[in-house]
Design a protein around this nucleic acid. Structure first.
Lengths: 231, 231
DNA sequence: CTATCCATTATGTATAGTCATAAATAGAAG
DNA sequence: CTTCTATTTATGACTATACATAATGGATAG
């Protein structure tokens, strides 16, 4: 073997054997000590390689049981949801932001259910539009729990979007994202300058800080939007 | 301090300080040796904690530059895209599969572009439907590069879906996923038993095995479908 | 004043050894 | 034959140490 193998090379090599069917789905892989002997490195090095293969969803590991190739290698898709501003600027377009409404209300029923709030909770409701080169790109409909984020009471969203404000001011520990397709209603059609009933990509996100609901937001994207991830 | 801190506890504690704004966005964090001294553990342990925080998108690390809290802590969303069968059965519904068409063709232009194929390449084109309790749940429109997967020439998709066949037979190294919203055309409306123009959630996936295009598939979901991720 | 070089430094990776832990298995007891 | 228990074993985690590497920032030369 020789050649000072690092954990990356080991990972690559093990993966190569898996995908070449040398080690097919369900195969019990050699133990870490055996692999370490074969590759001429320390067990910790093999361990890291195998750990990452496990994180990547290629293999499954169990103490004592050893490592085996996953039967259905359903690899995880990971992508990062960028700030709209960054996404628009990355396309070479000019970003513009427009605040539409900004009010304090009592949490509507559906929101209370979604976040686990009491119906009487005071929330800030912010609606705004994000433009790419003057074309409406995304409509943002956000609700912020004022109990969790009292600073939002006084925040000024006329020039800074609530998205950017929150992301730099309020941390969270848990989040839930839902992607779906919906038809544009009259309001959304008008805002995004499209027809009523047009298919709209909808991304809804809720976040919590240790069980405390923080915010819920719905992003309605202009027609033809695609969310792309590579891995 | 005491208490024998493991890398998980260290990770949690550092994250706690970040989210409590003790270490706000952009802050340069203490070096690994300092943290190791504070927590009373080896640098390798701190290293693993910080490594994972970096993987999670919480901090950014650079050699010599040290670690700093990300300005826009855009944490990464990771989805595990399950097999349709598993997804349907997890909902407590009965899974049924129906093959609609299965032919060998020359790659159409759009596919050649998407995957990077020569237009003359022979591909297997498979269309099928996945049902949940007899209701159409997803329409799968798949193309398989026969050069990359010659075994697909003889594969029988009448009872096993191409999705499941591929997932257990053909590995890949790179993939691209696109989520979008589209309107149901006449064909899709009929298959999914919905109206023409209804908003449909569309998931398109392309995979490669070391630069060799393997397959491209479009999943059209029945109306009201949501793709959910928690993290 | 600017461009280049180099020492410094924090992270990146590897090592050998140790102890911990979960789970499979064989063995003992009922 | 079943059930519980003890042993074994592969992975999980940690330590201390060492060297590699990239990038910074200052020193130096032009």
């Amino acid at each position: 073997m020789a050649e000072k193998l690092g954990f990356r090379e080991i990972k690559r090599e093990v993966f190569r054997r898996i995908r070449s069917n040398e080690w097919g789905p369900g195969t019990l892989l050699p133990g870490e000590v055996d692999l370490a002997a074969e590759f001429g490195c320390a067990r910790a090095t093999v361990n890291r390689a195998m750990q990452e293969l496990s994180d990547d969803g290629i293999i499954e590991r169990r103490r004592k049981g050893g490592s085996r190739v996953k039967l259905a290698p359903s690899r995880q898709v990971t992508f990062e949801i960028p700030l709209i501003r960054a996404e628009i600027e990355a396309r070479g377009a000019e970003y513009r932001y427009e605040l539409m409404s900004n009010a304090v209300e009592k949490a509507p029923a559906w929101l209370a259910v979604r976040l686990g709030l009491k119906a009487s909770t005071r929330v800030r409701h912010v609606e705004c539009l994000h433009f790419a080169d003057r074309t409406p790109f995304q409509y943002e409909d956000r609700w912020i729990n004022l109990n969790a984020v009292p600073r939002a009471e006084a925040a000024d969203f006329s020039s800074l979007s609530p998205n950017e404000w929150l992301v730099s001011e309020v941390p969270y520990t848990n989040a839930e994202v839902r992607f779906s397709a919906t038809g544009a209603d009259a309001k959304i059609a008008k805002l995004l300058k499209t027809g009523v009933g047009e298919p709209i990509f909808l991304s809804e996100r809720s976040t919590w800080l240790d069980e405390t609901p923080v915010t819920n937001v719905r992003f309605y994207f202009a027609p033809a939007y695609q969310m792309i991830a590579r891995y």
